[in-house]
Every structure is written in structure tokens, then in C-alpha cells.
Design a protein around this nucleic acid. Structure first.
Lengths: 216, 216
DNA sequence: AGCGAAAGTGCCACAGTGTGGCATTGGCTC
DNA sequence: GAGCCAATGCCACACTGTGGCACTTTCGCT
């Protein structure tokens, strides 16, 4: 339902942490922390991928990375959170891309262009971790719920950053954009060939207008 | 992300239970069970509404209704589940309405018409419980995640029931429909005047095409 | 270099959710 | 009525997430 605005504020958590094209932090402390976070996120995907998200106790992950529960929860909000690291990285990068994009012409094209730019910017490591993450999400309702919730937050953020007079149409457009993205992922999921994702996304966008006039 | 098809099957739970226009079950046993479920769902909305969803332990609800934890979990999948009863009732009714609708002309109109019909069918009791439920969802990320997840399941079901040659466009349309519905609820939420909901929904639908061509 | 401050970490205990096992109750069927 | 069976209640347990506190490491400053 994700109603915008009235939502209770969420605590910030370490500032987005692992961004893909990260400027390496200078202090030793920060780098150490980053390494722990990265190890947790990486191991989470492989471990959950092997034994299932619901079927893997958090302790299994902690044991493998040799980190205490207390430390884990200082770095991630929840078990779902660490599993969805790749997804969050994508959206973080996307928001940056939207900020950087030139806002002229049809807004739909701006949103599409920003995503295409984002997909180009993501590195090889991300493309290795994203597909397994999607499969995790597809297999665990709990994870899916968290992913959708995160998406809703991104949408609110987009509305905030793209603010225009007519709120309703902007909200609709952003919802449509995310919807098209989800449909695209559905089609991409079986093969997950990185090169095909932009083409699939363009195809989804091209189908949007005709979808509205689809006959029974 | 809600990828269709590959999703793990969910256990059925008592057949939807509390439907709004329910044919009363004959046996005393069934009626008793229904009463318990109804009491749990009703009390949940008021109790969570008063003390917050996250701030209310499940035990508080169980104590008030005088039901053991074991019994509760035989009737509802989770704490979130019971809180979202009104939402689930709506979608259950909507799926029925879609089945009953005549599938001719633009599919978007079919989907819209089915929702308008559903809104007319919902009884007064439901209109009393739905707005508080929405506010609960707006205040608790966990609830929102569950609600979105449920929505995704409904969408998969819709694709299944409306199956047409071109899957992509159908999926897109259904996503757009749900998106429009969510936007409508956002606008309805502040006042929650039952009579205004259909008009708001029509307005959202009318804005769909222009949203796609919105200029920056 | 050294030293105090601050941040990160580990360990422990606890609240809350959700599940399995098993006895008991209460309604349904004959 | 008597037996049968579903529903319930009670107990114990696994797992997630949090708070408190002590200990170690790093940072910034002298």
C-alpha cells in the first residue's frame, strides 16, 4: 500500500555503505568495516543461494564470516537487508543517475535513460551477485516483501526529487516505471545475460502505451 | 521484485475465511471458528491502531480475545496476516469480480469496472475497518512489505486468469492497474470518505495515459 | 611516541514471533 | 448416549533482533 509522506521515519543505517563505484574511505577503520560488510553480503548471497534463505539460520552466516551477531546487526538492519545488498546498490546508483540526468523532454525517457546509464555503470562484480539475489527474492516471500518495500521507499524518494506541480501523474509515472522494471526483470531472470538487460528494458518501455489499450 | 511462476507455493490456510458477503456455514463448529477469526481480526485493527503495530505484542491481542497462541497461528499465518484481513478481503472480492466480469473491450476498463463493482459490494463493516488498516500499513514498514507481497500474489493470479497471447503487455497492464489503485488510496487516505473512492479511482485511471507523456 | 577519546566488537541476557508435540475439550455422527 | 474427530490449550523450543557492558583497536592531538 506504501502511502507516501505519512510513513514513519527510518533510521539511516551506515550511509548506504557498499556503493559500487565507491570512493575508498581513507581511514583504516573504515576500510576494515567495509571489508566486513562486503564479506557478509557476498557470503550471504552464496550461502542463502545454496541452502535457501528461509532454510539458513543467520548463525550459519555469522559463523562462516566469523562475526558476532551484535556486529552483524550494527552493519545491517536485518537478515533480509544483507541478502538484498545488490538490489539496494542498484537503486542507490539509480537515484544518483537520476540526479545527474538532464531533466528535459518526456519524464519517462529521463527515467529510462537513467536506468540504462545505471546498468552501464554497475561493475562486473555486481552483475555476478545480482542474478542470484533475484532468485533468492523469487523463492522467499519474506525477501520479496522487503524488496518491494525498499522499492516503495525509492519511489517516494523519486517523487521528492522530481517534484512537479501535478503530483498524481508524477506518482503514476514513477509507479509505471517501477512496474516496467519488474516486468523486465521477470523476462531477464531465466537467462540473466547482462548484455540483454538494456534491450529488454527498452522493449518493456516500448510496450507501455499499447498495454494501456490492450483488448480482452 | 516478485517474479511470477518460479515462486515457491504457499500453504493455503483456511479458505480465505471471512469473506464479506459470506454464505454462513451451517455447522456450529464452523460458526464458532468464524467468530474467533472475526474477533481476532476486529480486535487486531483497533488494538494495533491504538498502540501501534510494532508496539503491540501479539500476546496483547491473544489476551484480549482470550485465545491461545497456538490457536491464533492455526487461523492466521502471522501477526501481519491478521492485521491485513480487510486488505485480503478486498482482493478476494476483486478476483471474484474479475471472474464474473464480461471480458470484452479494453482490458483496462474491465479491470477498472471490476474494482468499481467490488467497492460497491463491500459492506459497511468493511468500510469501517479498511481505513484504519491502511493507516496501520502506512505506519509499519513490515506491514507494508506484507501488503505489497500479497498484492504481487494477486497480480500473478490475475495474469493466470486473464491469460492472453502477449504476456508482457498483460503483465504491464496489471502492474499499471495496481499502481493506479495505490495512487488512488494515497489520495483517499486523508479523509477516507467511502463515497469518494470510486471517483478518485476513475480520476487515477483517466490520468494514466497522460502520465506516460508527462514532461519534465 | 604517548595518551585520552571514540568507535567497533564480543558476550550475555532478554523480548517477541512462529512451530511441533501431546493431552484435552467440545461438537458432530450414528 | 457413545464414540470420533476437529479444534483448542499448554509446554517447550528455534530463530530473529535488541540492550547493556566490558574490552580492544584506531584516531587525533600533544
Amino acid at each position: 500500500m506504501h502511502i507516501a509522506g505519512t510513513r514513519a521515519r527510518i533510521r539511516p543505517m551506515p550511509p548506504s555503505a557498499l556503493s559500487t563505484s565507491a570512493e575508498e574511505p581513507v581511514t583504516l577503520r573504515e576500510r576494515k568495516k567495509q571489508r566486513t560488510r562486503r564479506a557478509l553480503a557476498d557470503t550471504a548471497v552464496t550461502l542463502f543461494g545454496a541452502r535457501g534463505f528461509d532454510g539458513t539460520p543467520l548463525d550459519a552466516l555469522l559463523e562462516q564470516v566469523e562475526v558476532s551477531r551484535r556486529t552483524f546487526f550494527r552493519n545491517f538492519r536485518s537478515k533480509e537487508d544483507v541478502a538484498l545488498t545488490a538490489v539496494k546498490q542498484l537503486w542507490d546508483a539509480y537515484l544518483e543517475a537520476v540526479d545527474a540526468a538532464e531533466k528535459s523532454g518526456p519524464l519517462a525517457d529521463v527515467l529510462l535513460g537513467a536506468m540504462l546509464a545505471t546498468l552501464e555503470r554497475m561493475d562486473e562484480d555486481w552483475y555476478r551477485r545480482f542474478p542470484p539475489t533475484l532468485r533468492l527474492v523469487a523463492d522467499s516471500p519474506a525477501l520479496d516483501g522487503h524488496a518491494l518495500r525498499h522499492c516503495a521507499e525509492v519511489q517516494e524518494e523519486l517523487v521528492r526529487r522530481l517534484g512537479v506541480p501535478d503530483r498524481l501523474e508524477l506518482r503514476l509515472l514513477i509507479e509505471f516505471f517501477v512496474a516496467a522494471w519488474h516486468c523486465t526483470l521477470d523476462e531477464w531472470l531465466p537467462d540473466c545475460a547482462p548484455g540483454e538487460l538494456p534491450a529488454l528494458l527498452r522493449r518493456s518501455f516500448a510496450s507501455m502505451t499499447s498495454a494501456l489499450t490492450l483488448e480482452a
